[in-house]
Design a protein around this nucleic acid. Structure first.
Lengths: 132, 132
DNA sequence: CTGGATGCAAATGTTTTGCAGCATG
DNA sequence: CATGCTGCAAAACATTTGCATCCAG
């Protein structure tokens, strides 16, 4: 069987051409497949993990139990749309003052955070609105 | 093999006696086992899911891929301690003004949210501090 | 030639479901 | 005696790993 070379590069390229999208491993595999490649699932997995390890890509686990991958960049948080199931980036609502206040109030030391809002993305929200 | 009656009631009871703790299914099973019962894993799973469906219990998926269950109550968010792996409740840092601002800025409709901070809980933070 | 990447298959870890028996109302 | 709960076993799912092979440098 023909090999698919440079999978991780292809992943970065693919992600770059679809800015605001979080990819499951399956998404990545089928996305690469459309680009002519037909990589093995394990290879996609390993390439994705490599990119995560390198810091080029972020891995997120949603409540549906499947991991999503997205290009690393400026920090943002996410809205998991209950309409279309997309994971939409939203600006981070936590400022350092708030974070510090939380640390002071609870005695914890906060490093990172992950926020996932549930709701409707702007598209689904529009559609719901126009039907009302 | 003897049956363990009323597993879901036992779960609620168990959780009630250990306020701030998020339970994996395994935690629940061994917790119940210490109480004299020795329930089957599937039964624990089904009881937990039932409680979630009833709204008595919340289910959370962390990045380690294992679900945690905790008593439903006043909303709060969580810190996943990188020291002791506990999931510690912290007050919610998102107020309605901020949430509305986010909706206005992005056009989304926000329902719920889940925030998971990563860092050190107050206990682990203290220990780290005293070693410095 | 050598190390890193890939394909394939099989293992893993956790969650979920099928089915039969028990027990409570 | 009907309905729901439980135990046990096996399936389902997404992920992860072992191993042989391939390819670029």
């Amino acid at each position: 069987m023909a090999r698919t070379p440079r999978i991780s590069a292809a992943i970065v390229d693919l992600m770059g051409r679809h800015e605001h999208h979080a990819w499951t491993l399956e998404d990545l595999q089928s996305g690469l497949a459309e680009g002519g490649a037909a990589p093995n699932f394990s290879s996609v997995f390993r390439a994705a993990e490599k990119l995560v390890a390198e810091g080029a890509v972020l891995k997120l686990l949603l409540d549906d139990g499947r991991a999503r991958f997205e290009l690393a960049g400026a920090h943002h948080d996410h809205l998991h749309c209950t309409g279309c199931d997309e994971l939409v980036p939203v600006p981070c609502p936590i400022d350092t003052a708030r974070s510090s206040a939380l640390e002071a109030a609870t005695g914890v030391e906060i490093g990172e955070h992950r926020i996932v809002f549930s709701g409707l993305c702007s598209l689904c929200s529009d559609q719901a609105g126009s039907r009302r």
